[in-house]
């Protein structure tokens, strides 16, 4: 299935959980936060969150700024 991750196209097997996506991007998930379709999904809920075709996922972290 195709979904959008951080504004770009991303291919994932059908039925993938959010936790699998995050693991491929950031093996150390400390300091990472995720929103799916505009809502924050807390880290404890990543394993139980199944991604769907067309989901808009944002994976963010703190960065220098301000």
């Amino acid at each position: 299935m195709r979904l959008s991750v951080n504004g770009g196209p991303h291919e994932l097997p059908e039925g993938s959980a959010l936790t699998e996506l995050v693991a491929t991007m950031a093996p150390d998930a400390r300091g990472i936060a995720v929103a799916v379709n505009g809502s924050v999904v807390r880290a404890a809920e990543w394993p139980a969150t199944t991604l769907r075709e067309g989901d808009l996922v944002e994976v963010v972290t703190a960065h220098q700024g301000g």
């Binding site: 951080n6 972290t61 703190a62 700024g65």
Partner: peptide, 29 residues
């Protein structure tokens, strides 16, 4: 202060780790 940006492999993790080690309070913007 720190900002929040999309994660990428070329991020600034080390900056944040350094600030944490120095005991600096972080204020996200």
């Amino acid at each position: 202060t720190v900002s929040l940006r999309r994660f990428s492999d070329t991020g600034n993790d080390s900056l944040l780790a350094t600030l944490a080690e120095l005991g600096v309070r972080l204020l996200p913007n």
